[in-house]
Computed example of a mutant assay.
Amino acid sequence: MKEFFSFDERLGIQLPDLTMELADYSIETQEEILLYWEQVRGSIPDRIGELEIQINQKQALLSNESNFPRSCQLNTEIAELASIINDLWLWYRANEVLSTKVHQ
């Protein structure tokens, strides 16, 4: 089933990489894709938790940082991690759309 997914380095998860609309695949393939996606989707909250730990660590460093350029760098890193978390939540909610399309 991994042929329908590709690993996203930034997000740290497999993402759908379909060559055609989901509905254009056979029902069996659609079900396999959705089952695999549900497994990936189930790992998203854990991935978010990992990123939140990193944010907390960087915020702790930031609270004690007196070097302005370093504090700017930490802020940038925190913002990027927050952006990744936001994108992961979007993908997490994307399952509702996929399931609805297949079952219509």
Rank of each mutant, 00 (worst) to 15 (best):
K58H: 05
G49V: 02
E80V: 06
L81H: 08
R41Y: 09
I48A: 05
E52L: 15
S83D: 14
Q39L: 07
R47K: 14
E31M: 11
L35C: 08
R47T: 11
E50S: 15
Q57A: 12
F68Q: 07
Q39M: 06
C72M: 14
Q59S: 08
Q30V: 03
E50Q: 15
I48L: 06
A79T: 09
S63L: 05
Q30P: 00
E65P: 02
V40Y: 07
G42I: 05
W37H: 05
S71F: 02
P69Y: 07
Q59W: 00
I33K: 02
L51K: 15
T76E: 14
L34A: 06
E32W: 06
W37A: 04
L61C: 02
L51Q: 10
W37E: 03
R70F: 10
R41W: 10
T76M: 11
E77T: 04
D46W: 14
S43P: 01
I78T: 03
E50K: 15
D46V: 13
P45D: 10
N56A: 14
E50M: 13
R41E: 10
D46N: 10
S43L: 08
E50P: 01
L62F: 02
P69G: 04
Q54N: 13
N75H: 08
P45W: 12
S63C: 04
A79G: 07
S63M: 11
R41M: 04
T76L: 14
S63A: 15
N75I: 01
G49K: 01
P45M: 08
R41H: 14
Q54G: 12
A82V: 05
I53S: 09
V40N: 08
A79M: 11
S71N: 03
S43H: 10
S43Y: 08
I55L: 01
D46C: 08
R70T: 12
S43K: 14
